[in-house]
Structures are given as C-alpha cells and as structure tokens.
Design a binder for these strands. Structure first.
Length: 596
RNA sequence: GGUCCCGUAGCUCAGCUGGAUAGAGCAACGCCCUUCUAAGGCGUGGGUCAUGGGUUCGAAUCCCGUCGGGAUCACCA
C-alpha cells in the first residue's frame, strides 16, 4: 500500500475519532510539501476546521499529533496556517529506493494475455508532398502515446492511413506528366517524396496562371477556377483512376513508390514505425459501400445531381457530402471504410486518431455517421486532437514557402549536435560511427523534447531563425545528465565497487530523501500521461527529476565519499535515477547516450 | 453569424480535478572548473496570471460578461 493512501485513511480515522465526523476520502488532500517548508507531505486541514471547531492551526496541531502517534513512519510534523506538513522516516525512503532499484520494470505495466487492445492511428500523410514540421509533431505524439499506453498495460497496434488517392494526388501526377520530361528520383538525385512534391507545387503555379488568364478574359474567378484546363484534366484523371484506367494506374503506382521510399527514410530518421498500414486506395470502396448501404436504409439522401449527403442538423451538425455527383468519394467516405476494415481486422477496444485540432469537426461527424450506420463503437472513438505548430508570423503556408521541411530540420539538428560536441571536445575519444550515433541521438533528442514537452492540446510556436536550444529545459540537458551518471557508474565498476545492497540506517540528506520521493512518483506520472494522452507530463517530470539530480551532483560527491554506506547509497540512487531517465525518455521516443 | 479552442515574465512554456509568497528555461548581468563530464551549478533583475464581475474560508485554476488571437462550419484532405 502506498504512503499517501495509508496517510489518507489514517486522517479519515483521525477526524472520526477526534471530531466525530465521517469524511469522504476525496476531502483528504495530500500534496507534496513545498520546498520552502520542512516536511515531505502536506495535508490540507481546511476541510476539517468546521468539524473541529478550532482554528486551522489548532486543528493541524491535533491531527499532526494523532498521526505521529499512530504511524511510526512519521518522525516529525509542523503546522503553517492551515497546512500540516509531515516528515517521513528516512529509512522508509531508503527501503523504497531499494525496491525501485531492484525493479527492472519500475513504472511499467506489461500487457497481460487478455489485455484490451488500443489501435493508434497517426502520421496519415498524403502522397503528394514530403513531411513537414506539422507531421513531425503528429508522428512524435503518435509514437509516444503508443509507447505510453503500452506502459499502462494496453496491447497497442500502431497504424497509419496513407492518403494515396484523390484529386490532390492527381494534381502532382498530371503536372509530372505534362512538365516532368520523365524525371525520376534517380535522374534528379532527389528524394522521391520531394520530387513528387515539386510537381504538386508546379501544378499549383501553372494552375494559378491559367486562372489569372481566364479572369483577364472576363471570366469570374469562381468559374475560372472550375474551368481552367489543368483542373478539368485533374478531375478527369481522378475519374480515370477510379475506373481503373491502366495508364493512370501505372503512373500512380510509380510515383507513389517514389514517395514511399522517401517516407521510409524520414520515418527511420524520426524513429517511428507502424504495425499495420492502411491505404486509402484499398479502403475507399468499402466506404462507398457503407454510404450506399446508408442510402438504402434512408439514413442518407441523394440530391438531384446524384451526390449523396447526410443531414446531421438534428444533431447540431451540418449537412455533409459523402459522395460527389460524379460518384467519386471524399475524405469522409474513406474514413468510414477504413474504420470498418480495422474493426474487421482487429478486436479493437479503443480506437485513437492522432489528428490535428483543425479536424475536430470532421471527427465529430465521423463518430456520428458511424453511429448512424450501426457501429456501436462509433461514438467511443477517441480523437486525440493536438494543436498546430505555428511560426512567429502565423501558420505555415506551403504556397508561401514557409513550410519547415521535416528532413531538413532533422538534418540541421543533428549537424548542430555534431558541431556542439566538437566545440566542447566531448567526443574526441570516440570513433566516427560513435560520433554519428551520438550526434543523431542528441540532435533528435533536442527536437523531440522541444516538441513533446508542450501540452499536446495547445498550439505551439516554432521559430526557425532561433535554433532549438541544447541548454536548460531541453533534451540534451537530460541526456547529458544520464551520460554523467553512467560515467560515474563506469568508474565505480572499474574500482570494483559493489552497490547491490543498502544499509537501511545510513544517514541521508534532505536532498537525497527528496530525490527518492520524486522517484516514487514516476509510476503515477505514467498512469496520468496515459489517461490524459499527454507525453508532456512525462517530459516535465523527467526535467524536474534531472534538475534536482544535478543540484545533488554538484553539492555531493559520490565516488569520493569516504563513508562506504553513504557511497553505496549514492550509487544506488544515481543508478535508479539513470534508469528512470532512460525509461521516461524512451516513452517519449528519445534515446539517451552512455556518454556525450 | 453558429460551434469550439486559446490569452501566465521581453521570448518559449509549466502550474488549471480550487489551497501556502505564481514556477522553469532562454535572453541580460554577476559568480563557480588543480574535485565523479561546466551541454553543469549558484545568484540578481523581470508578473495587475488579457479584462470586469460572481461563487468560496481561499481563484491563474470554477461560472458569466467584455476585449484580443486562432480553428472550423467545402463537391480540399
């Protein structure tokens, strides 16, 4: 039984015996004692002062005396205003540390055989352009959430829905066909996804020129956009694609294969992966079937032009298009199909979509439509809605060329890490491949931590002109602390110091006791991060821990400590902290080096 | 216009299921390497928690209004 629960029930007993009231467990508020006061845990006494008919100070005093008398772990207490601060026996903390140190999966709950299954969809790229900073946030969140849920005992299937078809794909295909002169990744030396992206931009430029010409000829902007020949051709291409036209399909497969090899490279660098990938081209027909079924059931209706709609106004939503007049499908259509196929493929208990908050409405509608179509899990889907990454001047706009490319950014981070190591002379004794490995870890660590430490629900700002920091509240700071601990442990090992056992009665400082207390919070942090879908909670926790540890490291010596028991204790403490750093950072998808 | 989200130090962010004097990092300034990795530690300055009300013993946190910013309501995805 953990300390807080023990204390909590003891407080309930105390108020019952002292004041004759039966308090609810949630009235007992126990929190960590603020640093400026003596004590480990604080009980808020305000909820009981009425029943006690005493001043808050008096009530606190009485409760404190009762607690100390009835719990051997409490060695001392003090009351400030209405706050009762209790001090816990140091040997208790040492016992706890011993347990943590010997527990190789501290904080982690491994999935049991019959554990529930969570499917996490993330990434979901379009195959018409390379990944950018927005995708990075999505991928890092998706990967981290999957890891966190695994650590909370779920079975997790990571999935990706690739938007490999649709009008936008046809645009880059058409532009390549018209203006590409047969260019390939090989002939151009470009990464496949970047090459295809180039033609998507080409389409946009040429199309805009056509529209402007038409407007100059006196055609309205609206009509010009519809009748520009590039748009008409793209729509014809989409239709040809849906009808299985050989030539179009071949071009499509070729260009998509270029994109996939580019994406693979990006995903590898990012350190993310998937257990099962769905392709829109393989799910949209299922979606169409479902829409037609809904139409037959009278859930949906068709308009005169043949388009199919859902009327959701009675649910507070709008009317939603599900099939265009020409019979081609839209985003929503395929999402319905994909959902159905997934539930056929896996015994899903919880479906999580990691998708930006700009699509909040889309998922409201999706849940509603699935529900209407009779899927009982429709309403229970989770849209893990995260905020946008913005530049100081606002949203990234591909048309204005302000998009931060994922590959470029990752490369820059790794280069910066390499240069920094070199300037500081940190890796002078390492081989070239070690230097590569560590630079990659540190550069990616800086990027990942920068993104994951902020509350996922909130929009965040990224300033490309100021490179991501390596000092302070950053990934490298945490990695560095880990490396320093590992260095000490290596030296202990060289000196054949065995620290497998602890003397429970060793004298420890406040700081050391506090570090153990922090360690004990780790499992609860993982639980909460899972419940709230927030990697940021883990990031912030690890930062607090590391900051405290660095103060300890500065103020106390470990290997030079003469008292053997104390030295053992500090080694065990450091080792345990290194483990928690590593586990926590791994939950964020960040690796930690042995040296840096 | 309807719906939803956000506003905390110069900048980037914590804190938000109500609790003590609102915390970090960056930036600025000043200290600390003959001592286990200075990517570190210590210190100084910096706040009307957008704003006005309300609930409460107690509000950055909960409720209502106002102002400011954003998202969305597409035969885009």
């Amino acid at each position: 039984m953990n300390l807080e629960l023990t204390l909590s029930s003891l407080v309930l007993k105390a108020v019952n015996e002292l004041y004759g009231i039966t308090a609810e467990p949630n009235q007992v508020q126990i929190q960590k004692t603020k640093k400026e006061f003596a004590g480990d845990l604080t009980i808020v006494v305000f909820p009981f002062v009425k029943a006690a008919r005493l001043s808050p100070e008096h009530t606190g005093q009485q409760l404190g005396e009762y607690l100390q008398k009835n719990n051997v772990l409490i060695t001392d207490f003090n009351v400030i205003k209405g706050f009762l601060n209790v001090t816990i026996n140091k040997s208790y903390w040492i016992t706890i540390l011993q347990q943590i140190h010997t527990n190789t999966t501290f904080g982690i709950i491994e999935a049991e055989k019959n554990a529930p299954l969570m499917m996490v969809e993330y990434s979901s790229p379009n195959t018409n352009k390379p990944l950018h900073l927005g995708h990075i946030r999505n991928n890092l969140l998706g990967h981290s959430i999957a890891e966190i849920q695994k650590a909370n005992g779920w079975k997790v299937v990571k999935t990706n829905i690739v938007n490999d078809r649709g009008i936008h794909i046809c645009k880059s295909m058409l532009a390549w066909k018209l203006f590409g002169n047969g260019e390939t990744p090989e002939t151009s030396g470009m990464k496949g996804d970047h090459l295809v992206g180039k033609y998507y931009v080409t389409f946009d430029q040429k199309y805009k020129a056509q529209v402007n010409d038409l407007i100059k000829k006196g055609i309205s902007e609206e009509d010009a956009k519809k009748s520009a020949s590039l748009m008409v051709q793209a729509q014809q291409m989409l239709l040809a694609w849906e009808q299985g036209d050989n030539e179009v399909r071949q071009l499509w497969e070729t260009m998509n294969s270029w994109v996939y090899s580019g994406f693979d490279q990006t995903y590898r660098q990012m350190g993310v992966s998937f257990d099962k990938i769905y392709y829109e081209s393989q799910t949209y027909l299922e979606g169409k079937h479902e829409v037609e079924r809904g139409l037959n059931l009278g859930i949906f209706y068709s308009r005169e032009d043949g388009s199919v709609w859902a009327n959701l106004t009675s649910d507070g939503l709008d009317e939603k298009l599900l099939l265009r007049a020409d019979g081609t499908s839209v985003y929503m259509t395929q999402d319905i199909g994909t959902a159905k196929l997934r539930y056929n493929d896996y015994p899903i208990n919880k479906m999580v979509y990691v998708v930006g908050n700009e699509q909040n409405y889309h998922f409201q509608v999706l849940a509603n439509l699935l529900d209407k179509l009779g899927f009982e899990w429709g309403k229970s889907l989770v849209h893990f809605s995260y905020g946008m990454v913005e530049l100081p001047e606002g949203k990234m706009k591909s048309r204005e060329g302000t998009v931060v490319d994922a590959d470029d950014l990752m490369q820059e981070m790794i280069e910066t890490a390499r240069e920094t190591s070199q300037e500081l002379g940190k890796l002078d004794e390492c081989t070239a491949s070690e230097i590569n490995q560590i630079s990659s870890m540190v550069g990616m660590g800086a990027l990942k931590y920068f993104i994951l430490k902020v509350d996922p629900r909130k929009n965040m700002t990224f300033n490309p002109k100021e490179s991501i920091d390596f000092n302070g509240n950053t990934g490298p700071f945490i990695q560095y602390t880990h490396a320093r601990i590992k260095s000490v442990l290596r030296k202990a090992n060289d000196q054949h110091i065995d620290f497998s056992t602890l003397n429970i009665n060793v004298e420890i400082s406040e700081k050391e006791g506090y570090l153990i207390q922090l360690l004990t919070e780790f499992p609860a942090v993982i639980r909460q991060a899972g419940e709230e879908f927030s990697p940021a909670l883990i990031a912030n926790y690890i930062y607090d821990l590391v900051k405290e540890y660095n103060q300890f490291y500065h103020d106390f010596s470990i290997l030079k400590e003469e008292n053997q028991d104390v030295r053992q204790f500090r080694l065990v403490l450091s080792d345990s902290i290194a483990s928690v750093i590593k586990t926590g950072m791994n939950l964020l998808g960040i690796e930690v080096p042995e040296r840096m």
